[in-house]
């Protein structure tokens, strides 16, 4: 059985006063499970106070340039414009 759970995009509000920011994606069978999985996967170090999830195939994206619609491969499958977290200044070198 190769049934795959649909892909969800996850947005986390890091603390009060900030926007929800895209942090990544995950798979879940439904919206409720997606929120719960997001809590476990993306906030296990207390990174957030609020979570949004949305099915990736429900996102409508603008095209980065006008030629895009013709050439973007599998345009209906490649939907994301992910930003993840801001780059931390202290990416560890060791």
């Amino acid at each position: 059985m190769s049934a795959e759970w649909p892909l969800y995009e996850v947005f986390v509000r890091g603390k009060r006063g900030l926007n929800h920011v895209h942090v990544g994606s995950l798979h879940a069978a439904d919206d409720t499970m997606a929120v719960r999985n997001a809590r476990d996967v993306y906030t296990r170090r207390n990174e957030g106070v609020s979570i949004w999830v949305v099915r990736a195939d429900a996102i409508t994206a603008s095209s980065p340039d006008e030629k895009d619609p013709m050439f973007a491969p599998a345009g209906d499958k490649v939907y994301r414009h992910p930003t993840f977290y801001d780059v931390p200044a202290d990416v560890p070198h060791l």
């Binding site: 990544g24 170090r45 930003t83 993840f84 977290y85 780059v87 560890p92």
Partner: peptide, 25 residues
């Protein structure tokens, strides 16, 4: 980590962002 830290600057955006998160942890 030696392998991964430089990958935070890799040319493909989603890969680089995933690596930033990975390296942090």
């Amino acid at each position: 980590i030696c392998n991964q830290v430089p990958l935070c600057r890799t040319s493909y955006g989603p890969y680089g962002r995933a690596m930033i998160r990975v390296c942090k942890e």
